[in-house]
Design a protein around this nucleic acid. Structure first.
Length: 747
DNA sequence: AAGCTTTGACTTTTT
DNA sequence: GTCAAAGCTT
């Protein structure tokens, strides 16, 4: 194995001795490379066997990337290797030890939306006189209790609200147990409890995993830290990699202090700093360094590069959000004209709502773009409908799945029927499936038919493979026919895609030939002789259950594969871990970035600053920061001043451009952009209209108008069609303004 | 059971 | 301003 393409600091990290170490890995410093190299090095030098390493990441994507790198370095098949997300690894541990964890063998994982609907259902059936809490609130509260390691009977009850929550939490726990369901937080908590309460199992894993590597350590929550702690035995060596300056997930429980805690408890000053950056040019790094200096209590780190200063950061101020977007679109066109690929351009924003204006401007000027975020593949309605049937095959007592499928496609089973069934389940403590036998209403036959469908599917699952079973479900339940009838071609395509996903999944896991509900050994290869009898028994799981777990743990992409090069639009959070040639950070105003909800206390401001730091460090060659003096927010115009972060970037790294259109072009030229801008930014570009017809009135470029407030001016630019058309008008006394033609009052 | 109107929320999000 | 969900009507 060759370590020569590592720099000295990276090499030091990769070959650190057996004690614990903490690696502070700056943005773009080769973190993934170091992690993968360390694992490969440990195995290659014989210090660790294949089965003695545990690697934890936060996303499946990160796990996949690391795995493929290691696989390449070691030139071997990595199947069976313990690498994955906290949730994925806990899941694996629970499947292996389901008995000891007090689970049923075919427990199923529910995602956030499943959890929310379950909570909604419980609120209804609990019949508590007007809960003070919404389903969302309760979901948040329950999850955060779980993430601090507390179960319903461990909550300290000091008032009525608290008592209600504890009782509701208890109700929820019971329902999950009865339905054989386990939510995301519960995967961690159950696994934590297993290790904590079962000494034999704890000893086994402590002795087995001699090397534990953790990625994105700044994103761990308290429960995850506790879980790791239970895995650390006398001879365990932990290699924790993270960047306290990129901790942006406190709102979902991440505890940035876990890094210094880890240093105190384990690493004990054994810290390596990866500060050489291979991504961004000097001024961009300068801006990032300058900004982050304003945070207190950092572990300390300063990025540097050998690649030279590059261009300064361009900070652009505009009158409003529409002009901001328009300017960005024009600039993107310039960049593209100068040979930049659209895929290499990212437009980032603090909150999703901001994408609308940007999309609108991009759309009007015909620049293709791609918005990240939104529903992922396995979260789509039509997919979830199919998955619900599959869940019922595994466990017909899964009431959540039963409710979802019973009247889809429509079988004449209405809400009255459901209500009476739910009453029966409550009184007899049985599942909805079983409650059908006690129901005597008009829909009885329809209900029996539905239950029959489940039985038929279950029989089929014993003979058909996973892929055949899914195809059978699609036909037999009438789901395909339903969407065909409704001419929902997108959904039909997605259903085909589901079959493809199952095909790929089956092939990857070597069970293309097995019946869907036959228990099979999953960890065929790479298993060492059992260290302790009865513990490292092979994982037994059915292809069907395995696929369902996969669907919950890995929701899939939220974007179809792109057909053409497109500008990338996403939140700053979504951009973490990515990099682009050119980056626009938009809406950099007080109240938006930092967000107004984060402006009250210093720790949230610091998190916002880290968010800005993440945004800046995404850019390789060119960085734009834009802001608007006013913007439409929740239907109202809001005025704001530029973000404090703009001044914190440091003047030596940036060029400021005020919102006077003509000065803009000149100033910009002085910044000697490699991508020379269009000298006349007001000239007609492809997306602009030469005339606009609105409410019977015609507007043409060059036309003179008299505005009630701004007086006489000339139309220099028309943007958009119909109701939403705007005009840029050069007023004699007020300069250039952009005006909505539908609203503006002309004389 | 579908189709309408009203109400209310609204920062960021992976598993 | 936009979206979803709840509530009401037919």
């Amino acid at each position: 194995m060759n370590l020569d393409d590592l720099n000295n600091v990276q090499k030091k990290a990769v070959t650190a001795d057996n004690s614990h170490s903490l690696v502070l890995a700056g943005a773009g410093s080769g973190k993934t490379k170091v992690l993968s190299s360390r694992i490969a090095w440990l195995i290659n030098t014989g210090q660790a066997s294949f089965n003695e390493v545990l690697a934890v990441t936060f996303t499946n994507k990160a796990a996949r990337e690391m795995l493929s790198r290691i696989s390449m370095m070691l030139n071997r098949d990595m199947r069976g290797f313990w690498i994955g997300t906290f949730h994925g690894l806990c899941h694996k541990m629970l499947r292996l030890n389901w008995r000891e964890a007090n689970l049923i063998q075919n427990f199923q994982i529910i995602d956030m939306s499943d959890q929310l609907s379950l909570i909604k259902r419980l609120i209804k059936s609990a019949n508590v006189n007007e809960s003070k809490y919404s389903a969302r609130d309760l979901q948040k509260i329950i999850n955060s209790y779980k993430e601090t390691g507390l179960r319903s009977n461990e909550i300290e009850v000091y008032d009525a609200y608290n008592k209600y929550i504890a009782e509701f939490y208890h109700l929820y726990e019971n329902q999950c147990i009865r339905d054989g369901l386990i939510d995301f937080a519960e995967l961690l908590l159950k696994s934590y409890d297993l290790l904590k309460n079962n000494q034999t199992i704890r000893n086994y894993y402590q002795e087995r995993f001699k090397y534990i590597l953790v990625d994105e350590f700044q994103d761990t929550n308290n429960l995850q830290y506790g879980w790791l702690r239970l895995l650390i035995g006398n001879s365990t060596s932990v290699f924790a990699v993270g960047d306290d300056d990129q901790s942006i997930y406190a709102f979902r429980g991440a505890n940035i202090d876990n890094m210094s805690l880890f240093d105190k408890e384990y690493a004990k000053g054994n810290i390596v700093r990866l500060e050489q950056n291979y991504r961004s040019m000097g001024h961009i790094l300068g801006a990032a360094n300058s900004l982050i200096r304003y945070n207190n209590g950092r572990l300390g780190k300063k990025l540097w590069t050998q690649e030279g200063d590059g261009e300064k950061v361009l900070i652009v101020e505009k009158h409003n959000d529409l002009l901001e977007s328009q300017w960005i679109v024009d600039e993107i066109k310039n960049l593209v004209r100068n040979g930049i690929n659209q895929d290499d351009i990212a437009v980032l924003y603090r909150s999703n709502a901001q994408s609308r204006v940007l999309e609108h401007a991009l759309f009007l000027s015909g620049v293709s773009y791609k918005v990240y975020g939104g529903l992922r593949f396995f979260e789509r309605q039509e997919i979830k409908n199919v998955l619900a049937y599959l869940r019922l095959i595994v466990n017909r007592n899964d009431d959540s799945a039963w409710l979802r499928s019973v009247n889809f496609p429509i079988r004449g089973i209405g809400s009255r029927t459901i209500e009476s069934l739910l009453e029966i389940t409550k009184n007899n403590n049985i599942s909805l499936y079983d409650a059908v036998a006690y129901h005597s209403g008009r829909s009885r036959n329809n209900l029996l038919m539905f239950n029959n469908i489940i039985s038929t599917l279950e029989e089929a699952s014993k003979k058909l493979t996973l892929v055949q079973l899914i195809e059978y479900v699609l036909e037999f339940t009438g789901i395909n026919a339903f969407y065909k009838n409704e001419e929902e071609t997108d959904r039909l395509d997605n259903l085909k895609e589901l079959v493809t996903a199952a095909t790929i999944f089956s092939a990857e896991n070597n069970f293309s030939e097995s019946p869907a509900s036959l228990l099979i050994d999953v960890l065929q290869e790479n298993m060492d002789v059992n260290l302790y009898n009865n513990i490292s028994e092979q994982e037994k799981i059915t292809p069907l259950l395995s696929f369902l777990s996969h669907a919950s743990l890995e929701a899939g992409d939220n974007q179809f594969e792109s057909e053409q090069p497109s500008v990338q639009l996403m939140t700053v959070h979504a951009a973490k871990g990515l990099e682009f040639e050119v980056v626009f950070i938009t809406g950099v105003e007080e109240g938006l970035f930092p967000h107004e909800n984060s402006m009250s206390d210093n720790s949230s401001i610091e998190e916002e600053r880290r968010l800005m730091y993440v945004a800046i460090t995404r850019a390789r060659k060119k960085l734009y920061i834009t802001m608007a003096n006013s913007r439409m927010l929740r239907g109202q115009v809001r005025y704001s001043v530029k973000s404090r972060f703009i001044s914190e970037i440091g003047e030596e790294n940036a060029v400021f451009v005020k919102n006077k259109e003509k000065i803009l072009s000149n100033n910009y030229l002085k910044s000697s952009s490699r991508y020379a801008p269009n000298t006349n930014s007001n000239k007609l570009s492809d997306g602009n209209m030469s005339f606009v017809d609105i409410n019977g009135k015609k507007f043409v470029i060059g036309q003179n108008v008299k505005h009630k407030k701004f007086g006489i001016g000339t139309i220099i630019k028309l943007i958009g069609h119909g109701e939403e058309s705007q005009a840029q008008i050069s007023f004699d006394d007020f300069g250039i303004k952009t005006i909505m033609l539908g609203i503006a009052r002309f004389e």
